[in-house]
Every structure is written in structure tokens, then in C-alpha cells.
């Protein structure tokens, strides 16, 4: 077994110093070492997008990154968004549009949407669809997710005013 390496990673605003095996996937570090189980794992080969988190503000697939590659990085997971009592506008939009069923893939969609709307605050339906194309959902047929991304954009614009 390879030696453990020291890493310093900020997750949702908290700096964690941990010793990890180089092969530890970032998804496992977030879920099992830190106990932030809102990030889910669906394929472990970078296709389904359930494990999407933000790394330095950019959406990445945490199942195809080693934790050691995130040394010094700033990570944001679904837990960084709203709470059950006060959800983030994107989360509200997903509920209102019925954009989730089993909810397993949902955190990945949310984090993808956070990055996307940050850069594209007013997407058309076609653009919103393209934005979520790298996240798999088996339940919804995506239509309500597309609508939720657009609704979230409107809500966020209203928040800023």
C-alpha cells in the first residue's frame, strides 16, 4: 500500500486536514471521510454525473478525481446550498417543477446548475437542456429538470434585485 499523503482541502467553507491514500477517490473522501453523504456515486467512471461537486467554482466529477489532486482546493457540495427549512432558489425550483423523483441523481444536477447559472443567468430551454446533458436521470425524462433550471434562473434574478 502506498504511503498516505497529507492534504488540506476546504469543503463548504471548512478546512479539513487529513491523511489519505493517493488512490482515495474524491467522492469517497467527501462521503466517507468527511461524512458529507449528499454527494452520490452512480457509476464511478465519470459518466452519470451524480457525484458532481464544485472544485474552485467549477463543476467536476468527484468519482474520477483523486483526493490528493484536490489538495489546496475549495470544494462545494450540495450541503453548501440551502437547508430543508430555507432552500436555495435552485432547490426550490426543482421542487416546484417536480424535477426529482428518487432524488439520487439530484445533487449532481444541482451542482451542475449552480455553476451553469453563475455563468449563464438566463438560459433558453435548449441551452438549459444542453447544460444538464452530462447528468443522468432515470426517473424524470429530464423535461421538468430543464424547466426547473429555467425557473431557478428567474428566481435567482429576482433574489438579486
Amino acid at each position: 500500500m502506498a504511503d498516505k499523503m497529507k492534504v488540506k482541502i476546504t469543503v463548504n467553507g471548512t478546512l479539513y486536514e487529513r491523511e489519505v491514500e493517493p488512490r482515495l477517490l474524491l467522492s469517497d473522501f467527501i462521503r466517507h471521510d468527511l461524512g458529507l453523504t449528499g454527494t452520490h456515486v452512480g457509476c464511478e467512471h465519470g459518466l452519470c454525473g451524480a457525484c458532481t461537486v464544485l472544485m474552485n467554482g467549477e463543476a467536476v466529477r468527484s468519482c474520477i478525481l483523486f483526493t490528493v489532486m484536490a489538495d489546496g482546493a475549495d470544494i462545494k457540495t450540495v450541503e453548501s446550498l440551502g437547508t430543508m427549512e430555507k432552500m436555495h432558489p435552485i432547490q426550490e425550483a426543482f421542487q416546484e417543477k417536480h424535477a426529482l423523483q428518487c432524488g439520487f441523481c439530484t445533487p449532481g444536477f444541482l451542482m451542475t446548475t449552480v455553476e451553469y447559472l453563475g455563468k449563464n443567468p438566463n438560459p433558453t430551454a435548449e441551452e438549459a437542456r444542453e447544460a444538464i446533458d452530462g447528468n443522468f436521470c432515470r426517473c424524470t425524462g429530464y423535461e421538468n429538470i430543464v424547466e426547473a433550471v429555467q425557473l431557478a434562473a428567474k428566481k435567482m434574478a429576482a433574489h438579486e434585485q
Partner: peptide, 9 residues
């Protein structure tokens, strides 16, 4: 090329 999440890395 793949999807945004991949292109980010």
C-alpha cells in the same frame, strides 16, 4: 468533447 464537468478538468 464529453461534457462540461469533464472539460473543466
Amino acid at each position: 468533447i464529453a461534457h462540461k464537468q469533464i472539460r473543466n478538468r
